[in-house]
């Protein structure tokens, strides 16, 4: 009976994951390996293709895979020489703002997923806020991994592939921000988790009882323990030959915290350097006094 309960929890979290996260790992890997049968994603590899791809990036609608390659860049962009330094600076900032919009949407997705974890909404409301504040960026980084390979990453719900080299070429500190995520993702992807494993792992991250400022740790740890059991069982079933996968996965949580700390410092640096930069109030809330 206990194992049956753990399997039921696993199914429940997997369903919540599918409901709340539009681009699953299975779908992302199919796009990256060209097995969807649909058009290949639009590739952004330089400033010119970034200008051309902006209209796709800014389209908030979830695609039905059938996107068109952009015909012509909007007139305002077409008139801009991409060699122009100031203009590419503005373009970088606009791209950064698009990333912010997507991040804000991702926070909503993660919040809805968290609410679906049995027992989460019964926790002290202050503790729910704390768990999300500390968990969301870690979750976003984990969710980036399936979208990435060593050469680049899918963005805009899989409609665009942006090359790693291009991201690296952006001016400081933009150019430095994604490289640690690629390094993490390439290693993380070798674990070959599937979407069901991912759903349970995300729940484990959210239910971390050691977040600063938690008021009532015990019920959080109890919930996490159950999800951990469910994850351990799930991994045994989905990866019977992968020894120590459970332990390896838990070790990733330490790496994640370091990445988040560095990410938040980069954002704080950006805020100081870029006079025109606007940080969304929700992201400000999350990052303020985080680490």
């Amino acid at each position: 009976p206990e194992a049956a309960d753990l399997r039921a929890l696993s199914r429940h979290l997997y369903e919540a994951y599918l409901k709340n996260f539009p681009l699953t790992k299975a779908k992302a890997r199919a796009i990256l390996s060209g097995k969807t049968g649909d058009k290949a994603p639009f590739v952004i590899h330089d400033m010119k293709s970034l200008m051309e791809g902006e209209q796709i990036i800014n389209c908030r609608q979830i695609p039905c895979q059938e996107h068109q390659q952009p015909q012509q860049p909007p007139a305002a962009f077409a008139a801009v020489g991409h060699a122009d330094c100031n203009m590419s600076g503005e373009l970088e900032l606009r791209f950064f703002n698009s990333c912010q919009s997507r991040s804000v949407e991702a926070v909503r997705e993660v919040t809805e997923f968290a609410k679906s974890i049995p027992g989460f909404v019964n926790l002290d409301l202050n503790d729910q806020v704390t768990l999300l504040k500390y968990g969301v960026i870690e979750i976003m980084i984990i969710m980036m991994a399936p979208l990435m390979n060593k050469d680049g990453t899918l963005i805009s719900y899989g409609q665009i592939f942006m090359t790693r080299e291009f991201l690296k070429s952006l001016r400081k500190p933009f150019g430095e921000m994604m490289e640690p995520k690629f390094e993490f993702s390439v290693k993380f992807n070798t674990l070959e988790l599937d979407d069901n494993d991912m759903a349970l792992f995300l729940a484990v991250i959210i239910l971390s009882g050691d977040r600063p400022g938690l008021l009532n740790v015990k019920p959080i740890e109890c919930l996490q323990e159950t999800v951990l059991h469910s994850l351990e069982l799930q991994l045994k079933i989905s990866h019977p030959d992968s020894l120590q996968l459970f332990a390896k996965l838990l070790q990733k949580m330490t790496d994640l915290r370091q990445i988040v700390t560095n990410h938040v410092h980069s954002i704080q640096l950006l805020k100081k350097r870029e006079v025109d930069m606007f940080l969304h109030p929700l992201l400000q809330e999350i990052m303020k006094d985080l680490y």
Partner: peptide, 21 residues
């Protein structure tokens, strides 16, 4: 804490789109 995290708190209480906030 709730006061300092009004939007997060709102998201927890309902599923308002943060983009609309």
């Amino acid at each position: 804490l709730k006061e300092k995290h009004k939007i997060l708190h709102q998201l927890l209480q309902n599923n308002t789109s943060p983009v609309d906030l």
